[in-house]
């Protein structure tokens, strides 16, 4: 098995607020991230595809094709958007790194034509990220 990773960056704003909690609880749990006007990040996404290289092309998945999938599914949907209000898949969820990584997984997994999605790693900053794997397939990579 070979693991191929493609990186992309996008910038987006978000805020953390759960309407089921009081204003005071929201401030206590989410701190600065509860600012009602939102704030933004430069996100870095690393998408890892696992598979065997095709014997003819030598590729697990053509990177051009992966780049187009990422552009269509992620960049167009999330880049320079307010995640809470403009990404339908996040409606009703707090757009934490964990939840955004899961939404990205669910968007990409059915679109990968060769090999399979192994890991989605989403960095909100260089010091905070979330990893998403299919249960039981984390392995060593």
């Amino acid at each position: 098995m070979v693991y191929l990773t493609r990186k992309l960056e996008f910038s987006a704003s978000h805020l953390y607020h759960n309407p089921a909690l009081s204003a005071e609880e929201n401030r206590r749990i989410f701190g600065k991230c509860n600012n009602p006007h939102g704030h933004g990040h430069n996100y870095t996404l690393e998408v890892t595809i696992a598979g065997e290289p095709d014997p003819v092309t030598g590729m697990v998945l053509d990177l051009k094709e992966l780049k187009e999938i990422l552009e269509r599914e992620i960049t167009q949907r999330m880049d320079h958007r307010f995640l809470n209000y403009e990404v339908a898949e996040l409606k009703g969820q707090i757009p934490t790194c964990e939840n955004v990584a899961r939404v990205i997984w669910n968007l990409l997994e059915p679109k990968i034509p060769q090999g399979h999605l192994h890991r989605v790693r989403l960095y909100e900053s260089s010091d905070l990220f979330a990893d998403c794997y299919r249960n039981g397939s984390k392995g060593t990579v």
Partner: peptide, 15 residues
């Protein structure tokens, strides 16, 4: 929601 079939980790870096 496919949450139950996914394994999610939180990563944090300190210096």
């Amino acid at each position: 929601m496919m949450a139950d079939i996914l394994h999610i980790e939180l990563g944090r870096r300190y210096h």
